[in-house]
Design a binder for these strands. Structure first.
Lengths: 336, 336
DNA sequence: TTGTATATTGGAAACGTTTCCAATCTATAT
DNA sequence: ATATAGATTGGAAACGTTTCCAATATACAA
């Protein structure tokens, strides 16, 4: 069933049918009705490949990320796709396989599917100008890393959380409660992760406060799941280094750590204060409830989509947006 | 940059370039190399619309669901998309707006994008045979509801969790621990929800054990979030009806309930046993850890994708698969 | 009635591929 | 050298739309 069949059975030309489909003005009421009825009757749906082909564009937006499993991005993805759908775009997910250059993959995707734009989840600002120029479409870096800052502010858009500041604020909070010996629990610091940024901010706050950091208090978990955090905390405790507080770079790790502390006979917050990051809903209900820095995830997603849509539709130019994680006080921190 | 440009700059025909692109055998080594180099050099990427158009098919699979926000499906979605990508298909998300017939929307999508297949998340087996036939492509109902059972087993495929059995098993577990006065905490029973199925199974187990159910022990929360569960548990406690155990239809609700109990001075499991459903990772680490029925989410997703891929690729016919939630013993239940 | 302006229509090219078929090469056997 | 089979190649149609342009129908004024 094609546009041609509809034309044939209505006794009009394909042009007319096409005009009806696209709400073009110059078509008589009579013809329009006839065509619409035939479309209804035959359950005709225009083929989007053909349309995209001739229009030289699609209504698709690429979502490019390195992998979904176990990731922070897995939570971002559904609402992001939802928002794009609501805005009239079709999200196209694309996973980068390890060993593949993500910008090249993104550029390929953009050309193959004639994308309107791209959201690069967990990208970086270390791309070269040539690389981003090769995309040819608007793009937004969402929760990107930035070590070299190759791009000028007018050359890219980004929406991110200030992870470094979050680490800094967490350390400040514990310092202000009188803690000096603070352990930090993080997942693999490799590949310039969010974890590393928080860790850098944390260190900076200690330095500024004149508190030397004991490397024995750095607990880097090999795996990023709760089990890894739990085991790493046990090791930390077994090592015997004294600490009165622990900063975990995620809520789930914090909860696992609390259990490890609990099993070692150290109660929270009486014997050890704990601070997490993320602000997952559960942290209000655990016993004790967790003091945590709430990630504005919803805002992150909305802002990223809005920024991209604005760029696509020509409203405003590139912009970088940084969102803050705000502390939410629970029962897991006590004043020393 | 099109196939034509490549052909031109290599001095070969478009046919040859196309053959190279598709790994057709009949092309000389010399020509192949020349073309590959030109493709590399010009960063050429074939246009998928044109390809789909002439091939009369795409590599896309539709994921159709009613809405993502706050939903069980939001968790299923990322791994499902991932698995489809891994299997060589492009997932295309499609959200059904309220007031729209989902099968009709699915059929439209399938035709417009020439989908290879469909996964209907939260569909039903109450579709008519004509409706499903109109899809024209293989489909899998994932966690579907089934009140009329219009379709014969060879007319549809489905992968689902036996929610009724989960409720039944949860009640059995508590009964076997000597509990007789068991409260149940569920979210809105409206619209034939998972919640209702678990509640039905729960009731059946009580009946079979000859334990009359006190309606005062039914706590139906208006909202499905943790806050609703927390408040509803408080109300239950305030009402003063005695109970020694509580069955929450989800882990998050169970955790919220435990906090409410805790705040009311009732410790778990000493004063009240609690059982949840879902088996989210966190339940191993909360204090106390939670006894819960673990949803085989990963298996659910894998099975749904595998089933669809099998159907698409002609391996085997329609099948219905029901997965069981297995109990995981935590510290939240005690023997009376 | 005729002419003119305007509304509506149809024809055909174009979008970028794939694939069938026929044509041309190349190599081998006679 | 010639015939023949097989490998390789190019030409052209086809996929289902949109859109430009020219052609026709309609309405209205003179």
């Amino acid at each position: 069933m094609t546009i041609k069949d509809i034309a044939l059975c209505c006794g009009v030309s394909v042009s007319t049918v096409s005009r009806v489909l696209n709400n073009h003005p110059n078509v008589s009421e009579k013809a329009r009705e006839k065509v619409l009825r035939a479309i209804q009757e035959h359950h005709f749906v225009p083929n989007s490949s053909a349309r995209d082909l001739v229009k030289l564009e699609s209504d698709s937006v690429g979502l490019v990320l390195r992998g979904i499993a176990n990731s922070f991005f897995a939570e971002l993805l559904p609402p992001m796709e939802q928002l794009l759908l609501d805005a009239g775009y079709t999200p196209i997910l694309h996973q980068i396989h390890s060993g593949t250059d993500e910008l090249e993959a993104a550029a390929r995707l953009a050309r193959a599917k004639r994308l309107k734009g791209l959201i690069l989840l967990g990208g970086s600002n270390d791309y070269s100008r040539e690389q981003t120029a090769a995309l040819k479409v608007p793009f937004v870096l969402c929760t990107y890393t930035n070590s070299f800052g190759n791009l000028a502010p007018n050359q890219y858009s980004s929406v991110t959380i200030d992870d470094r500041k979050t680490g800094y604020d967490a350390a400040r909070l514990l310092l202000e409660h009188g803690h000096r010996r603070i352990a930090i629990l993080l997942d693999s610091v490799r590949d310039r992760s969010v974890s590393e940024l928080r860790w850098m901010g944390f260190r900076q706050a200690l330095e500024e406060a004149g508190v030397p950091f004991d490397p024995a208090l750095l607990a880097e978990s090999v795996s990023f799941d709760m089990d890894g955090a739990y085991r790493r905390t046990k090791e930390l405790l077994a090592a015997g280094t004294a600490f009165t507080a622990l900063f975990a770079v995620s809520d789930t790790m914090a909860i696992a750590a609390i259990r490890a502390l609990h099993e070692a006979g150290r109660s929270v917050p009486a014997d050890c204060s704990v601070v997490g990051v993320d602000g997952i809903a559960l942290t209000r209900y655990t016993i004790p409830s967790l003091t945590t820095f709430v990630q504005p995830q919803k805002e992150l997603v909305c802002t990223a989509v809005r920024t991209l849509v604005d760029l696509i539709e020509g409203r405003g130019g590139n912009r970088q947006i940084v969102l803050d994680a705000a502390p939410r006080r629970g029962q897991s921190v006590r004043q020393l």
